[in-house]
Design a protein around this nucleic acid. Structure first.
Lengths: 141, 141
DNA sequence: ATTGACTCTATAGGAATAATGGACATTATG
DNA sequence: CATAATGTCCATTATTCCTATAGAGTCAAT
């Protein structure tokens, strides 16, 4: 399951995508009914992963670092929740051995989870933030 | 990520599948190097979901409720970790609305997560416990 | 009756998630 | 320069979930 934080991230990103110019934290929080302080942490992560840029001071706020059509669902989920795979050993972007792993070559789940990871990544990388912007009358999450 | 509990479940199930006749908790725990008491909880769940049957008393133990070729990876994961979907609203076996959902029809992630859920389920349902039994020299997880 | 097994209920510790609070830094503007 | 509106940083709390353990109870074979 994706975390509440990731949900916040999507809401914020869709809101920014629909807006023009820098959007302030307070603005996003108020419009999407999110905790301003919690959203702050989310935005920090999104910034750290170069999905948004921030500007300070009056008239400051957040903007998408790239066009909405160039930001995939996978990037958003990875930025907040981490790897898409169902096991460390099945992750491509953050591969590491599972604890207590006897030998990856004899693992009866790794191969299957790799297959799952592959199809999941393909789908989430194919879909972009812009996918529903023009279609849905109002974007929610 | 799948939980440690699910990992235990797979190890136990593979061990039972390779054995003959009822296999005791202590036997599984000792052979697979698992906490006996924790494994107990895992086996209870597997029993509740009809993946194994248990018999009491001397000579008692656990057996697969069905042939290993009839038990899918999806069933095991669902039994312990719950739905495969990345959001409650994208689950087929345990569908429910996400908290704070404005309107599922306007949700910009539900459709994508449904797609992911579909491909994940297809893969995990296609693979059975027996898949690697004859292939790998030793089954680990 | 004894032994070896599963079963049930309770609980504790720790990690991750969710959320909050306050002080600080930066920028536009009058 | 003063002010107000903004993001940034650090610390802390609350809650939930995961992992693990403990002990008393039940059942069946011998």
């Amino acid at each position: 399951m994706i975390s509440q934080k990731t949900r916040y991230a999507f809401r914020a990103l869709f809101y920014i995508a629909r807006s023009k110019g820098p959007v302030s934290l307070s603005d996003i929080a108020a419009s999407e009914n999110l905790s301003r302080k919690f959203l702050e942490l989310v935005m920090a992560e999104l910034k750290r992963h170069h999905l948004v840029t921030a500007s300070r001071g009056k008239k400051g706020g957040y903007e998408l670092a790239r066009p909405a059509g160039d930001i995939s669902y996978a990037e958003v989920i990875r930025a907040i929740d981490g790897p898409l795979a169902m096991a460390p050993c099945a992750s491509v972007t953050a591969h590491r051995q599972c604890r207590d792993c006897y030998d990856p070559r004899f693992c009866a789940i790794r191969q299957v989870l790799l297959e799952v990871r592959g199809s999941t990544a393909e789908i989430l990388e194919r879909h972009k933030l812009s996918d529903f912007l023009g279609i849905l009358p109002k974007i929610a999450v």
